[in-house]
Design a protein around this nucleic acid. Structure first.
Lengths: 149, 149
DNA sequence: GTTTTTCTACGAAATTCTTCGTAATTATTT
DNA sequence: AAATAATTACGAAGAATTTCGTAGAAAAAC
């Protein structure tokens, strides 16, 4: 009895830790949906699903209800918010892209670069091309950091 | 009949794609073990397990056979190699740390920064402290990149 | 030499994440 | 208004990952 409710509550609790602005880590599939929402702004499940299927490199089709279910879970977790006033719900990302990127970045740096963001920066620089404009932006940033310390 | 062998082979095949130097993506738990092996050099299951448990922040103890099983799977995948000449096996990472880091970095950039390594670099720089020495290293790297392009 | 400890192998449970099928409801088309 | 299509809710299957328990062999301690 009440199993369903227990599970739903569990999903909420585990991802909020009772904090106000806590942002639960999105899974890979959830992040893909967030990327669509950040790019396109408010969107329906149908729109998100179709975008995902266009992006799909392998022929592999993602079922409509798969996307629906994920977005329902994301609503529970607080990753997205939705407008349910009409039958077809509209979804938006609940957090700014940069905030989520930074949280994932932190986790990645910890797991893969022993917490050293600078080591990550150097490897990323060493293994990728950069345009003149990007290099200039980075130089500016470094100069700003110099002055700070 | 032969189920076990089939599974084992499957694990091998899926992670090698029949290529010579293909490096399978380690999972999170596997990466933690690789980190220990990179830090300490050749080590036994017991040593790895104890190191992991020391690092453990929550009290949560990782069972010995859990680590053992993971390292056996990693052997099948080709992530580690082991010396089985004595009863207590010695394990080493099969790939250099940088190579694995770069592969994971590429995946992370794709999933979280739309493939833009430079955007990742700028966010990482913007949100972390850096020592004077690190800043100098980055400046050198950028200069080197300038000359290349 | 017997008991206890340590080690590997391995199946399988537990957990987390992803995918889908079905039912019920509302909207649209004919 | 009847039939068709679209939408949500939701349980549950499927897949990937992590964890552990048990068995059997080897080594160490007694």
């Amino acid at each position: 009895m009440f199993y369903a409710l227990t599970f739903v509550y569990e999903r909420f609790r585990k991802n909020c830790f009772m904090e106000k602005n806590a942002l639960p880590n999105p899974t890979d599939a959830e992040l893909e949906i967030l990327n669509v929402l950040w790019e396109k702004g408010p969107a329906t499940v149908r729109e998100v699903n179709e975008t995902l299927n266009q992006q799909q490199v392998d022929g592999r089709e993602i079922g409509y209800t798969t996307t629906l279910k994920l977005m329902q879970i994301m609503t529970e977790k607080g990753l997205v918010q939705r407008d349910t006033s009409s039958r077809t719900h509209e979804y938006v990302a609940a957090f700014p892209r940069e905030k989520v990127q930074n949280q994932l970045l932190q986790r990645f740096v910890d797991s893969t670069f022993q917490g050293s963001a600078m080591q990550l920066v150097m490897q990323a620089l060493g293994n990728h091309q950069a345009s003149e404009q990007e290099l200039q932006e980075i130089r500016d940033l470094i100069e700003k950091m110099e002055r700070k310390s």
